[in-house]
Design a protein around this nucleic acid. Structure first.
Length: 417
RNA sequence: GGAGGGGUGGCAGAGUGGUCGAAUGCACCGGUCUUGAAAACCGGAGUCCGGUAACCCCGGACCGCGGGUUCGAAUCCCGCCCCCUCCGCCA
């Protein structure tokens, strides 16, 4: 959510920023409704003041045993007017909230118009054979057929050595993040609507979100939702910032609208596990923190031996809450191209404002802080990349030492034919 | 699932229609006293919106959330959320 005050004080700056990303649609309506509200409010407050004064007089009269009937009758009229005004005000406020919620975050000045590759790191392996894709390499250890029989398309069983690989990957990642000051968290994955509104997924990505009709709960598409809400309605002491969390949870996505895309394997599935980084920082520290999250993502990919490139995401693909976003794409030999593995966003104060997450500096007033998120490890896609990049001629897969140290098999034997 | 109890300021805890934004205690900040500290005493201190450029000042709102009754609601009524206790069930 954007700052109404700023929108009021420099509407053209805001408009220009929004228009860069094509998100100014409801701006005029917001401004109009804000003016309406600001016209009604003082009127209502004047009536309230009148009521308050009269209440004192009536109390005093009653206390001294005098009749207050005249005043009461007069105030009855005032009360009726106040009630009508209040209804009008509430109507305007509800509309305002709705229109304001449709405005996306203001992009950073440096955010590019188009996706821009910043760098490529690591050398794609030059296989002396035709590289297999992750499904050929995994065999039934990624059991698509039975997953589909159980739950439909885009669901899979993960089996055998790959389960141990996932656990090693998660363990290793959480240890590494612990070293960077992230507290591990396993959050609820069923959340209320407010959490999705607060993080900017609603209204925006409703068609991606699973909803439980009987319980007014939603399945999160990322633990970002739960982690952001961890400090909702709190005022944090500035000295305690930054606060960093590493959420580990399953993620659920309907993938409506992506029919036919990435249908093979587990690149795009309805359920996957993910370790997500989330930071609460002072506003002036946000940009630096964003680069920090990106650096950690790169550290992880490098340690896993995965060739990757970093993309500065263009304005069109930012998503409602992000002011800036970087993706890391890993090289997939079977596709001969880079595919998205991780993503990190600076959401500035957009989520903090909606969730009422503030900080207080020594002796100061509460002020909004900044929130940032970044994928540490999207397990499914990382397994794909590990399989494909670590494969050998015989179909076995060499696993990076860091994961072996955390319990993964050093070499995954070839899939049974 | 059944039966009860409860949500008030940082915490504890009064308040059941009328100067209540809210007693009191603890914690906190400032001051007096003291060689210093403690104790004691005095004072201060919440959040949000608007008037404003303004951390002074003025008005308004906030006693879980949202409605209702009333001239007036922390107090009465309705709905929702949350917490606790007991029973049952259960990973």
């Amino acid at each position: 959510m954007l700052d109404l005050k700023r929108l009021r004080s420099e509407p053209e700056v805001v408009r220009a920023a929004l228009e860069r990303r094509g998100g100014a649609a409801s701006l005029n309506r917001v401004i109009e409704l804000d003016q309406q509200r600001r016209a009604l409010l003082p009127e209502l407050e004047a009536l309230r003041a009148e009521q308050n004064a009269a209440n004192e007089a009536i109390s005093a009269a009653k206390a001294s045993g005098e009749s207050a009937d005249g005043q009461i009758a007069a105030m009855s009229e005032v009360a009726a007017r106040a009630k009508a005004l209040e209804a009008e005000l509430h109507g305007a406020e509800a509309e305002l909230d709705e229109a304001l919620a449709l405005l996306p975050n203001l992009p950073e000045d440096d955010a590019p118009a188009e996706d821009t590759v910043l760098r490529e790191c690591g050398e794609p392996a030059d296989f002396a054979f035709d590289p297999r894709d992750h499904l050929d390499l995994s065999g039934e250890r990624i059991d698509i057929e039975r997953g589909a029989r159980l739950s439909g398309a885009r669901f899979a069983y993960l089996r055998g050595e790959l389960v141990m690989l996932e656990l090693a990957l998660v363990r290793w990642t959480l240890e590494l993040l612990g070293g960077h000051g992230f507290e591990p968290v396993i959050p609820p994955v069923l959340v209320r609507e407010e959490a999705l509104r607060g993080t900017g997924f609603l209204p925006d990505t409703e068609q991606q979100i699973y909803r439980l009709a009987d319980d007014d709960l939603y399945l999160v598409g990322t633990s970002e939702v739960a982690l952001a809400s961890l400090h909702a309605d709190e005022i944090l002491e500035a000295e305690k910032l930054p606060l960093r969390y590493a959420g580990f949870s399953p993620c659920f996505r309907r993938e409506a609208g992506s029919a036919g895309r990435d249908t093979r394997g587990i690149f795009r599935v309805h359920q996957f596990d993910k370790v997500e980084m989330f930071s609460f920082v002072a506003p002036e520290a946000a940009t630096e923190e964003h680069l920090r999250l990106l650096a950690i993502e790169e550290q992880i990919l490098t340690a896993l031996g995965l060739p990757y490139r970093v993309v500065d995401i263009g304005l069109d693909d930012l998503g409602a809450s992000a002011a800036r976003k970087f993706d890391c794409e890993a090289w997939l030999p079977s596709q001969q191209r880079y595919r998205e593995l991780t993503s990190t966003s600076n959401t500035s104060d957009f989520q903090a404002r909606r969730l009422a997450i503030r900080m207080r500096r020594e002796g100061g007033k509460p002020e909004l802080l900044a929130t940032l998120n970044g994928t540490a490890v999207a397990v499914g896609r990382t397994i794909i990349a590990l399989l494909e990049n670590g494969q050998q001629a015989d179909g076995s897969v060499v696993i990076p030492q860091c994961l072996v140290d955390c319990g993964a098999a050093a070499v995954l034997p070839p899939a049974e034919a």
